[in-house]
Design a protein around this nucleic acid. Structure first.
Lengths: 339, 339
DNA sequence: ATGAAAGCGCTAACAA
DNA sequence: TTGTTAGCGCTTTCAT
């Protein structure tokens, strides 16, 4: 305990103290290495006394692989996204990887961040935000750097992806709304296009066309609660001829409901049926009981992590696309369920 | 473009292609290095063509410092925590650091994770979850590894901290509740102790004692919405003699409100005044309009990041404690404001 | 301004 | 089972 030196302690120091070679130190800290129990204990003891810790960066340099992975995500403080990230981080960690978290801000170029990850020799990158450019995706591929995209569309089959079936989402919403009472519908979705969110709205509209049901389209400024609250100002004006609305995002739906209740005293589902999408925790809260389409974050992220681990294992395997199952959740903003 | 080799390209390859030495490549990628503009361009061009990227791990090995930092957080998918983490990540990134995110699960030992960070030569660690043991804190200190704790108490002055004044929080809640109508109060807080959450509840109770006001204590199983919803079953039974309740957490408050509305048709603030703490986004939602005590996540995290950067700069500076300002937010679950 | 050489802390191939 | 040697990819004196 007398070593208050400032110098970080290296394997060399441990080796000397334990009276062995540096290799032995390395072996003592390597799973399943060829070393006698006695030596290992000797080394571990010396290491303990010196406060030695393996430098993973140096190890990675040598083994040419790090157990770092990248997670690039936007809107991290949004319920659905934070859940995704929590699960992803947890899952990676449980597999021995350490996630570097890169948050994407509205103006950012996702590709830039993916690119930054390359500097760290990460074992792979998971992105759940805007879609990186094909160019950067190509680069990853060329560098054999595993890349998995969540809900960014199939992207010309050049990266592994996990996504919901937007078509199914749109149709499901339609069915949930019209099952009991066919009527005049509406959809609200954000202005800024996004594969998954815009996609489900488009699919919904398409389905309405096919079924010959009129549908009003309300464009919000974003996918947030506040955006829903705002746009509901317009929806309120059309309340007399709309009886069902599909909000492309739960958050949007919650905002819409609160505004409509406040300014028009709307009752759900009697005056208006509402269906959201995602199934965030808040959708189930007592103030809302929102009927929605569940996109299971856990299943989604687990699938993505699995894809990534598999690709790390085998970089040349064919591209994979995991299509996520969607589940209708009937709570109290729709009139009836499937029975 | 004909180099589809599998080998990662190194500074050596770039040097050869550019017809210079490896040192020059290094210089070309180093801010303010001694290199002519002409050479730099030459190198950059060659690098571009080869798809070269500096290996930060190797660089870190050499310079003995990495721009990695650790964030260890629990309950990442909770509104307040996810906001903290989003801001922290963003802030670190904007300062050129890359955050490694370690999520702590209920059974986990925080110290273990802090310890893991040490393997990566991180520049520092921020923890916003359970408190690491004094032992690990000491170890960090010994290794001169910057460590900043958010809302974990002052911890015997051995680590930098940012925290709210729990005393003030408790008193503020008391004042908000009793300003207009003194009465019988209650407090709900989670069973599992935590410096900040338990602290404010204790302070509230203490204040009640001092002011000679009776206070009922309800212990919830956690700080979640669901826990609030559950415990409200008990609160409902006492509704006839309670007219104000302080929930140690906004989430708890929201759960309490929903349950009380559902089962006892309680109106806020007429039947019962409620004050939460944190000021998460949902507290301001139309369904709640919860009066609360704001703990500004942005200010908090910025302060923590600043502390960390300062300590990286100067490891021997005296320990710092940042006491965060609390702001009462009067919305619609209390009868009046300060005026 | 540039190049040669040494070394960061580690692991892996090879000998013994 | 253990030690020796040679790098991993980079930066950094120190000459030139």
């Amino acid at each position: 305990m007398t070593d208050d030196h400032n110098k970080p302690v290296t394997s060399f120091d441990v080796a000397r103290r334990a009276g062995v070679s540096r290799s032995m130190v390395s072996r003592a800290f390597t799973e399943g290495a060829n070393i006698s129990e006695k030596s290992r204990e000797k080394v571990l003891k010396a290491a303990e006394e010196l406060g030695y810790r393996v430098n993973f960066l140096a190890r990675g340099l040598q083994t040419r692989q790090s157990n770092l992975v990248g997670i690039v995500a936007s809107s991290l403080d949004t319920p659905f996204r934070s859940r995704q990230v929590r699960i992803a981080a947890q899952e990676f960690i449980s597999h021995g990887y350490r996630p570097i978290l890169l948050t994407v801000e509205p103006g950012d170029d996702v590709g830039q961040w993916v690119s930054v990850m390359l500097n760290y020799n990460v074992a792979g990158v998971m992105v759940t935000s805007a879609t990186p450019s094909p160019k950067i995706i190509q680069e990853c591929r060329k560098l054999r750097m595993p890349l998995v995209l969540i809900n960014r569309g199939k992207n010309q089959d050049i990266a592994d992806t996990v996504q919901i079936d937007v078509q199914q989402a749109g149709e499901l919403a339609f069915t949930m709304l019209t099952r009991s009472r066919a009527g005049r519908l509406a959809v609200v979705h954000p202005q800024i296009p996004s594969y998954s969110v815009t996609g489900r709205a488009r699919a919904f509209i398409e389905k309405c066309r096919i079924e010959n049901i009129e549908v009003d389209e309300f464009i919000s400024t974003s996918q947030s609660y506040a955006a829903g609250y705002d746009i509901a100002g317009n929806i309120g004006l059309s309340l007399d001829h709309i009886d069902g609305v599909f909000c492309a995002t739960d958050l949007l739906a919650l905002g819409v409901m609160d505004r409509l209740r406040a300014d028009w005293n709307t009752r759900f589902p009697d005056d208006l049926q509402v269906v959201g999408c995602d199934d965030i925790e808040q959708a189930g809260w007592g103030a809302y009981h929102l009927s929605t389409i569940r996109q299971d974050a856990e299943e989604q992220v687990l699938a993505a992590v699995t894809q990534m681990l598999e690709r790390i294992e085998n970089p040349d395997a064919p591209i994979q696309h995991y299509n996520q199952r969607l589940t209708p959740i009937f709570r109290k903003t729709t009139l009836s369920n499937y029975d």
